[in-house]
Write a protein that binds this DNA or RNA. Sequence first.
DNA 1: TCTGGGGTCCTAGGACCC
DNA 2: TCTGGGGTCCTAGGACCC
Length: 407
Amino acid sequence: MFVSVPSTQATILHADLDAFFASVEQRDDPALRGRPVLVGGGVVLAASYEARAYGVRGAMGGAQARRLCPHAVVVPPRMSAYAEASKAVFDVFERTSPHVEGLSIDEAFLEVSGLRGIAGSPTDIAARLRHEVRERVGLPITVGVARTKFLAKVASGVAKPDGLLVVEPDGELSFLHPLPVGKLWGVGPVTEARLRDRGMHTVGDVARYSEATLTALLGPAAGRHLHRLAHNQDPRPVRRRKRRGSIGAQRALGRAPKTPDDIDAALTGLVERVCRRMRRADRLGRTVVLRLRFDDYTRATRSHTLAAPTARTSLVLATARHLLRTAMPHVDRDGLTLIGVAVANLRDEASAQLELPFWTGDGAHPRTAVDVDPVLDDVRERFGTDAITRGTLLGRSPGVAMPTLPD
DNA sequence: TCTGGGGTCCTAGGACCC
DNA sequence: TCTGGGGTCCTAGGACCC
């Protein structure tokens, strides 16, 4: 899994498609090329660079975006087209390097050390990658090249759109320290404000504070992370991504009054969508999460962990309804503006079969065992019999007397 | 600046176990 | 009998990312 990186060379590429959704729309409809394009009406999912010139940003409200750029063309999102384009781009990534770490639908890290002999310098590889994505998929992509992931990502951000920027090892600190702290990965509005209150505006400012100070300000993980980034320490290797840990869906409900039936219908639709996606991916999950958002933009989550993983709609729906019932007495139904369901604690269907629930001797603690058979062997040995089967141990049939499990 | 839909990771407290 | 330390799991919330 680990790739050894020569620490003296810039060999990590961060490749990031430019205004991805909007670029796909411009690729597929020549009439949109050169014009400001907004994908999504309620909220801007993506804005073409022509629209960004007017100050439009992603995640901006649609009304505000149209105020800033009245002549923009608004198109509805076509998620399947974006998924297809993403797959084609990742195919190019995979052909470029065996070490690809996808970050999202439109960006990835590539480790290209060791390819110099066959594919040229990292700069050559990056230039060719950009060319290939343009030729084969028809989309503009920006690549940052550096010695660390973090710097490569910052570099691509600076080089956008349709650019290539290489940060050589001897120019790292002069590139990094003048940047505003908000450029640091993991620094959002809240952390930025906290740093600003302490007089830290640039990465160089942050670098002057001790790790202890940053940790006291931001918590142990964030403080350490920030301290390291500010000192250009980012040893994280490029590695394949873990499989995703949750699958969810959510829906905005608007501000109109709603009946319990309205809410239940929305909940049912969401659970069906989520369970269908889980089954298609051959994945099962144990934790059902209910997300609620209210008209004052406060949020609440409720979750429940089942004894065994499932992708069954009826079970997930019953659990979600239970969570909603226990949450609703405390909230105003008409104030509910968004409802979401996710199933977390995911595993592959195949491995989940080894994770059936069993009960310890007193029957009070439903548990899961990652590996049932070693326990079974142990129990047989202690009870001196082979008559105890996996089924007995798992206690699936009611009324069967359970043996007491040894410690 | 009033807001989508999809995620990840961290924190902190409580329950429970050894 | 009382006490404690260490570890895992669950729940809820928060920050952040694209």
